[in-house]
Amino acid sequence: MTRYRPPQPQSSPYISKPGYKALNEELKGLWKTRREVTAALSAAAAEGDRSENAEYIYRKKQLREIDRRIRYLQKRLDVLIIVDKPPTNQQQVFFGAWVELEDEEGNSVAYRIVGPDEFNVEKNWISMDSPVARALMKKSLDDEVSVQRPAGPIHYIITGIHYTED
């Protein structure tokens, strides 16, 4: 048995303007944090034996994690496409849409379709690569949508579509 894992499929390159700005701010913050961690690492290294120095080991691990995230953000920001205008046909579901859905029991839920780098469960922002968003794309008002779940399929009816930042 090997530890090989095939690479993840490439996620969609779309992002909203505020999402791009947030990733850029995160990158700038990581560079500041990296300077502080590097200084702490140097101080820990100066204490002597590094093999038993918990502070040194922790700071090295922290620095690796920061560097990994910086590399990811630098590569990702280069390929992202900022979507800052709503589509011409606002009667269909596309990137940035708030979609109101009703299930078979009459329960309502609203999702905003965003890029994979900015989804947020608390805000009901779902990635455009998620199964629900894929099922919703290019659908119109009053269309029925079926989403396959591990517990079985669930059916929704689209009761509203709007394009606002809220």
Rank of each mutant, 00 (worst) to 15 (best):
residue 2 T to W: 04
residue 2 T to R: 10
residue 3 R to Q: 08
residue 3 R to D: 14
residue 4 Y to G: 04
residue 10 Q to H: 02
residue 10 Q to Y: 00
residue 12 S to A: 12
residue 12 S to Q: 06
residue 13 P to K: 00
residue 14 Y to Q: 01
residue 19 G to F: 02
residue 22 A to M: 05
residue 23 L to Y: 02
residue 24 N to W: 00
residue 26 E to L: 05
residue 27 L to G: 11
residue 28 K to F: 10
residue 33 T to R: 13
residue 35 R to I: 05
residue 35 R to L: 09
residue 35 R to T: 04
residue 36 E to Q: 04
residue 36 E to Y: 06
residue 36 E to A: 07
residue 36 E to F: 07
residue 37 V to W: 05
residue 37 V to R: 06
residue 39 A to K: 14
residue 42 S to P: 00
residue 42 S to R: 13
residue 43 A to M: 01
residue 44 A to D: 09
residue 45 A to G: 00
residue 45 A to I: 00
residue 47 E to D: 07
residue 47 E to P: 02
residue 49 D to A: 10
residue 49 D to T: 03
residue 51 S to W: 05
residue 51 S to R: 11
residue 51 S to N: 10
residue 54 A to Y: 07
residue 54 A to G: 02
residue 55 E to G: 11
residue 56 Y to F: 15
residue 56 Y to M: 03
residue 58 Y to F: 05
residue 60 K to R: 14
residue 60 K to Y: 00
residue 60 K to S: 06
residue 61 K to C: 01
residue 62 Q to M: 12
residue 64 R to H: 11
residue 65 E to C: 07
residue 66 I to C: 05
residue 67 D to Y: 06
residue 68 R to G: 13
residue 69 R to C: 11
residue 70 I to Y: 03
residue 71 R to C: 02
residue 77 L to S: 10
residue 78 D to I: 01
residue 78 D to M: 01
residue 79 V to K: 12
residue 81 I to V: 15
residue 81 I to R: 13
residue 82 I to P: 10
residue 83 V to R: 10
residue 84 D to M: 01
residue 84 D to R: 05
residue 84 D to I: 02
residue 85 K to A: 12
residue 90 Q to C: 11
residue 91 Q to N: 14
residue 95 F to W: 03
residue 96 G to K: 08
residue 98 W to G: 13
residue 98 W to Q: 08
residue 99 V to A: 13
residue 99 V to F: 13
residue 101 L to Q: 12
residue 101 L to W: 07
residue 103 D to K: 03
residue 105 E to P: 08
residue 106 G to R: 02
residue 110 A to H: 13
residue 112 R to W: 14
residue 115 G to R: 03
residue 115 G to F: 01
residue 117 D to V: 09
residue 118 E to H: 00
residue 119 F to Q: 15
residue 120 N to S: 03
residue 121 V to W: 05
residue 126 I to H: 15
residue 126 I to C: 12
residue 126 I to W: 14
residue 128 M to S: 08
residue 129 D to V: 10
residue 131 P to F: 10
residue 131 P to A: 13
residue 134 R to L: 15
residue 134 R to T: 13
residue 135 A to Q: 04
residue 136 L to E: 14
residue 137 M to D: 07
residue 137 M to L: 10
residue 138 K to I: 04
residue 138 K to C: 10
residue 139 K to A: 13
residue 139 K to T: 11
residue 139 K to Q: 15
residue 141 L to T: 01
residue 141 L to Y: 00
residue 141 L to D: 00
residue 143 D to H: 05
residue 145 V to F: 10
residue 148 Q to N: 13
residue 149 R to K: 04
residue 150 P to G: 03
residue 152 G to Q: 09
residue 153 P to M: 04
residue 153 P to T: 12
residue 153 P to I: 09
residue 159 T to Q: 15
residue 160 G to Y: 01
residue 161 I to H: 08
residue 164 T to D: 12
residue 165 E to G: 12
residue 166 D to G: 07
